[in-house]
Amino acid sequence: MSYFDKRPPVKRYEHGSRVPGWDEAVDLTKPPATVPDPALTPVPAELREKIEAAMALYPDSKSASIPALHLAQQHHGWCSPEAIEQVACVMQLTPAYLTSVASFYDMFALTPKPKHDVYVCTNISCSLLGADEFYEQMCASAHGHEDIGVRGFECLGACDIGPMASVNGEYVGPLNLFDAQLIVEDLEAGRPVLEHKQLRNRAVADPQGRVADWTGIDPVGQEG
């Protein structure tokens, strides 16, 4: 018996794809998705204006695809096929071009998503400090709240307040297990989230960076 044959057997995957889309065939009754004809693809005027403004910022208007997808996602709540077709119409690209771009980036949702985004960082620094437990707690607390979407996220660039989360773009931390419930309550009440833990108000850790009249939150571990 050789070296490799001595290894124990592996329990098989259960059948099936874990990536949405992998197992899907095309719908042969649909027409090919070519560049949308402006006469046939209505685009909300406000969205069109914003996308056109973004396109004007770049030497090559294609550069505006990510900003335009952000705008479309804001407008439609997610990057729905309709949203993508509208962007494609304004930018005169194929919808596939934009689908390809959108699916590459974590912040674009190609399936309907809840209104509120809670990105819990589960990367190394945060997880050393208990991010995985917080993530589980956050999922549990948000359970039943249809409009709150909790996602584990890779490093969000705020390990100094780890474990941390980005709630609708607002960075908060360090989080303990009780904060999960508070986040849900703040979101449901339409309040600013965990105001006392918002990164925007936190002082720099470096003592020489500090000023005497600082009114915000002290750095982690340097309270009082």
């Binding site: 889309g21 899907e24 095309v26 719908d27 042969l28 027409p31 998705a33 096929p81 596939a96 689908t99």
Partner: peptide, 9 residues
Amino acid sequence: GTHDGHPYV
């Protein structure tokens, strides 16, 4: 793949 299940025609 293609956009939203459209065939590549």
